[in-house]
Structures are given as structure tokens and as C-alpha cells.
């Protein structure tokens, strides 16, 4: 009895020494990535939050202003306008890219001649450089010389006057949303197609034997199989589009989504880094809030 316990104790202590060593070794192994994450991700975030409490001076003598920067932002009606614009933009582009991507993926999942070629051609908007396609869109929608107004106004008389669809504050958001969907749906399409191809065809055969029609097959097999895939695509697209700057800004400067508001507020003319940091912080909190609501309430993960 006595000797047994001694033995087990010595095994235990030896085990804990080994465990200790392994732990240390483990820390040693993750140290490089830890250093990178802390210095390149965590430090900037913390420093950004820190800066948002100061009026940042070029000379380096920052002045502590408490939550004045944050107050200035959340009492600015333009800020809330841009939050609304952002939500509308994110909502419609996310839904649009996912739905169009889903439809195209379902279509491309069927067999037809030259399918491989068509599948790769669909990726074109996604892989084309933003600046090139943005200019093409601007030429198309130019109110005086553009092909769109030429057809819609001169030929079809759809409008009573020439309209600058791409720049006017009333209409530019629609063009931006349309552009966002057109530019980014191939990504959703690609992901969904991969998901569709992974579904066991045996499931469909079984369903057919049970007498399922096309819609029922989609409702009870395809959709549940790609449910989490769709959830992730929507989440990713929402995050990306919430922070989207270049597509919107290059296309039309009049759709003031949050990143553009930040740019105009903090970086035009005199740099206002304190305000910029405060906006970034508020934007971050908003985004986290949306994600949490989405994950908990919509996806029920």
C-alpha cells in the first residue's frame, strides 16, 4: 500500500515535470506568432483606443480631452447619417451578392456544354482591378456622353431629363449597391458552388424516390447542407462591406458610408487623428455589436 502510493506519487511528480516542460516548450513554439499578434494587432488597437482620448498635435504634445472626441462624433448628425447609409449599403450588397451567388451557383451546378469556360468567365468582375472597372462604370453612367443615358433617355425615353445617376446624392447609393453586388457576387458563387459539389448525390436520389419535387429538394436537402456555409459567407461579406472604402470612394464620392465619413472627417485638410481614432473605435464597437446579434439571433450558433 505504502510502496504503491510512493510509486504513484513519483510517477505523478515526474508526469508534472514533463507536463511543465511541455507547457514551456508549447509557449516557446507559439512565442513568434504571439509577438507578431501583440505587436501588429493588439498594440495598434490599444494605441488607437488610447489616442481617441487625446487631441493629437503634429508637434507631439498631445492634449488629453477625455471623451470629447467620442461625444463630438456621436452628436454629429452626419455620423448617424453615415451609419444609416452603411447599414443600407451592407444589407443590400450582402443580400444581393449572396442571392445572386446562390442562383448562379445552382445554375452552374447543372451539366451543360462549355460549363468549365462559363464557370471561369463568371469570376471576371471579382478578379478585375477595381480602378479599371470603376472607370468603366463612370463612362457608362456619364450623364452627357455615357451609353446608359444615351439608351435610357435618347432612345427609350425612360427619364424626363438627363440624370447623373452615379454622382447625384439621391441615386448614387443604388449605383454603389449595384456595383458592389456585380463586383463581389462571384466570390459567394465560388464558395457556394464548392459547397454544392460536396453534397452527396445519394441524398437527392433518395428524395426523388420519396417523390420530392425541385423546390422541396432545395428546401430540405440543399439549403440545410449549405446553411452554415451561407451563414459564414454572409458574415464575411458584411464585415468586408462594412469596412469597404475603395470601391465606394472611387466609384462615387457621395455615398458616405462610415469609412468615407472617417476619411473626410479625419484625413482631409488638417489631419484630426484623435477624431479618426474615436470614429474607428465607435465603428469597431458597432461592428462587433452587429456580428454578435447576427451570430446569436440569426445563425443561432
Amino acid at each position: 500500500m505504502n510502496s504503491d502510493s510512493v510509486i504513484s506519487k513519483s510517477i505523478f511528480t515526474r508526469g508534472s515535470i514533463l507536463e511543465d516542460r511541455e507547457k514551456k516548450f508549447g509557449w516557446f513554439l507559439i512565442l513568434p506568432s504571439l509577438i507578431i499578434i501583440v505587436s501588429l494587432v493588439l498594440y495598434p488597437i490599444v494605441y488607437n483606443i488610447f489616442l481617441s482620448f487625446f487631441e493629437v498635435k503634429v508637434t507631439g504634445n498631445n492634449e488629453f480631452t477625455g471623451i470629447q472626441n467620442h461625444l463630438n462624433i456621436i452628436t454629429d448628425p452626419a455620423f448617424w447619417q453615415s451609419v444609416t447609409t452603411s447599414i443600407v449599403y451592407v444589407l443590400f450588397t450582402t443580400l444581393g451578392t449572396t442571392l445572386v451567388g446562390l442562383c448562379v451557383a445552382l445554375l452552374m451546378n447543372r451539366k451543360f456544354p462549355l460549363r468549365g469556360l462559363v464557370r471561369s468567365l463568371i469570376l471576371l468582375p471579382y478578379v478585375a482591378p477595381v480602378i479599371a472597372v470603376v472607370y468603366s462604370w463612370q463612362f457608362i453612367f456619364d450623364p452627357v456622353n455615357g451609353i446608359f443615358m444615351h439608351i435610357a433617355y435618347d432612345k427609350l425615353h425612360l427619364f424626363t431629363e438627363r440624370i447623373n445617376l452615379i454622382r447625384s446624392p439621391d441615386t448614387s447609393i443604388y449605383v454603389a449597391i449595384l456595383f458592389g453586388i456585380w463586383k463581389n457576387f462571384p466570390f459567394s458563387y465560388l464558395m457556394i458552388l464548392a459547397g454544392l459539389q460536396a453534397i452527396d448525390t445519394g441524398l437527392y436520389e433518395a428524395a426523388e424516390i420519396d417523390g420530392c419535387k425541385g423546390w422541396q429538394k432545395f428546401r430540405y436537402i440543399t439549403f440545410p447542407e449549405i446553411y452554415f456555409l451561407l451563414g459564414s459567407i454572409i458574415l464575411l461579406r458584411a464585415i468586408w462591406n462594412f469596412n469597404k472604402f475603395e470601391e465606394v470612394f472611387l466609384l462615387t464620392q457621395n455615398v458616405k458610408v462610415l469609412p468615407i465619413y472617417t476619411y473626410l472627417k479625419a484625413f482631409t485638410g488638417i489631419m484630426d487623428i484623435g477624431h479618426g481614432a474615436a470614429i474607428a473605435m465607435i465603428q469597431f464597437i458597432l461592428l462587433i455589436g452587429f456580428i454578435l446579434i447576427y451570430v446569436k439571433r440569426v445563425l443561432k450558433w
Binding site: 450623364p143 452627357v144 431629363e161 438627363r162 440624370i163 447623373n164 445617376l165 452615379i166 447625384s168 457621395n254
Partner: peptide, 18 residues
């Protein structure tokens, strides 16, 4: 002016006689 927000780039409309 030509429709919508415009900037100096629209001088091309002048060169086109518009």
C-alpha cells in the same frame, strides 16, 4: 451646369462643343 455634381474634368464637354 451638366447634371449632377461636377468638377473641372467636365471641361471636356466644352471641348466637345456642349
Amino acid at each position: 451646369t451638366p447634371p449632377g455634381p461636377q468638377t473641372w474634368r467636365a471641361r471636356d464637354y466644352y471641348l466637345q462643343g456642349r
